[in-house]
């Protein structure tokens, strides 16, 4: 049993378009799993199905071995799923610190809001900001910080709940080279903590260097699964990427 199992051929359709077409894959504890594929391959849709923002037409999502396909978003989060978004969902009118504070508050629940405990709370917020390296940005408004930084903020917010599974949607886009390198180290640490990390990512260097397993999607189908070296040499994956490139040159 893996931590996360997308099983029984998950299908999602938008009108006539099949965004996820009979996809099944897994992500394990202590591992960084990559989900790659050309634009429109259905990666983010998969994330929406896993986190509960979207109901699949068919298929099952199992988390900790339990079927969560029809479990509401917030209850999946309570069971240990955290996610970031490809299109940012930071709380733009709040400061960076208040973004993390809000996440910590949500994690404590409504009962926690009414009980005192502000001091340990503040320390926790500071620790989370420090972990992703955002201490300097704490007082900025979240809609005023660079995109890459906002992605780290979303990660810090997720970590407030100490989730067993992190779903990261293009976490490195907007980061420069040295920041990406540091981020890769952070990813390995997060997995070493005993978390599962499932990551949609376009930066192939990052994917190849940090992932333990990679699933490649194309037109909603899983076309290859395996270790980075296997994926790199896979003919179907190369076709999916290079095929796209050919079309791009013609257009």
């Amino acid at each position: 049993m893996s931590l996360l199992e997308v099983d029984d051929d998950v299908v999602v359709r938008f009108g006539g378009v099949t965004a996820v077409d009979h996809a099944s894959f897994t992500a394990g504890t202590g591992l960084v799993t990559g989900l790659i594929g050309p634009n429109g391959a259905g990666k983010t849709t998969c994330f929406n199905v896993i986190s509960g923002l979207l109901r699949p037409a068919k298929g099952t999502v199992r988390f900790h071995g339990r079927d969560v396909t029809s479990t509401p978003v917030h209850r999946r989060a309570k069971r240990g799923m955290g996610r970031t978004f490809q299109r940012l969902e930071a709380f733009g009118s709040l400061s960076v610190r208040d973004n993390v504070r809000a996440a910590v508050d949500i994690n404590r629940g409504l009962g926690g809001l009414l009980t005192p405990g502000h001091r340990s709370q503040a320390a926790r917020v500071d620790a989370l900001l420090d972990r992703v390296g955002l201490t300097h940005y704490a007082a900025e408004r979240a809609d005023a910080i660079p995109t890459g930084t906002a992605r780290l903020l979303e990660l810090a917010r997720c970590l407030a709940a100490d989730p067993a599974l992190l779903l990261l949607d293009e976490p490195s886009s907007g980061l420069n080279e040295s920041e990406t390198e540091a981020f890769g180290v952070l990813l390995r640490e997060l997995a070493a903590d005993g978390r599962g990390v499932l990551m949609v990512e376009h930066d192939m260097d990052l994917v190849m260097s940090v992932c333990d397993t990679i699933h490649a999607l194309d037109f909603g189908r899983v076309i290859a699964s395996g270790a980075p070296a296997e994926i790199r040499g896979d003919a179907a994956v190369q076709r999916a990427y290079l095929g796209k490139a050919d079309v791009g040159q013609v257009a």
Binding site: S51, V73, F85, I106, N107
Partner: peptide, 8 residues
């Protein structure tokens, strides 16, 4: 959406 995925 973010509030939901954070557990609210």
């Amino acid at each position: 959406a973010a509030c939901g995925t954070l557990g609210l």
